[in-house]
């Protein structure tokens, strides 16, 4: 039935006899679905099964401690400057006597906060850090109910002594070799009383 004189048939291709039977088409379609019965499932059962992650995956940050457990961060603020999303804020404080085991340098970060909602996980903070204090890890930031909870303080960022995080995969061979050089400020170790200048470890 023609409803209007302006109607046009878009395609004037007639159905062939086998097309009008539909059965060949149906069988073709069903063979396609059947072939999928034997195909590999694309699903990764996420919490049980993890997709392999790159060693340099950029996830949640960690503020590293050194070998004896002192915080490496000296609150220089280079990470905050490097941060394109302006996600990092910090407040510095002076190390007091007797705190040498807690903080590696004379100055340390009293407050160190990263807003995980602002963070774009670019890794520039990691690159900017001269003290090898901040690293990105392969941990994925948890979900929260409140926006405030996404502002991670030192309680969440600083590495726990009971659960050390291995970041060697994130460092190039050259860096690791370079770090071993004696005489570097980097390798000065605190033995409990005083800094052990230039001692190879």
């Amino acid at each position: 039935m023609k409803l209007t004189s302006r109607s046009k048939v878009v395609s004037n291709k007639e159905q062939s006899f086998s097309e009008s039977l539909y059965l060949p088409g149906i069988i073709k379609g069903m063979s396609i679905t059947l072939s999928h019965l034997f195909k590999r499932r694309a699903t990764v059962k996420y919490p049980d099964e993890l997709r392999p992650m790159a060693g340099v995956y950029r996830g949640q940050h960690v503020l590293k401690r050194d070998d004896i457990g002192a915080e490496r961060c000296t609150a220089c603020g280079l990470c905050a400057v490097a941060c394109p999303a302006e996600a990092i804020t910090m407040e510095s404080a002076e190390r007091k006597k007797g705190e040498e085991g807690m903080y590696r340098e004379e100055k340390y970060a009293r407050i160190y906060e990263i807003n995980m909602l602002r963070c774009i996980f670019c890794g520039l903070c990691e690159e900017a850090c001269p003290k090898e204090a901040i690293f990105l890890t392969d941990k994925i930031v948890d979900t929260e109910y409140e926006r405030e909870d996404f502002i991670y303080g030192k309680d969440k960022l600083v590495e726990k002594m009971t659960a050390r995080i291995d970041v060697t995969k994130r460092q190039t061979k050259e860096v690791i070799e370079f770090k071993k050089l004696p005489g570097l400020k980097h390798n000065e170790l605190f033995d409990g009383k005083s800094l052990n200048k230039g001692k190879k470890h």
Binding site: T33, L34, H36, L37, R41, A42, T43
Partner: peptide
């Protein structure tokens, strides 16, 4: 789910 390359209820 098998026909659609999925796992289905498990």
């Amino acid at each position: 789910s098998f026909l659609q390359d999925r796992v289905g209820p498990d």
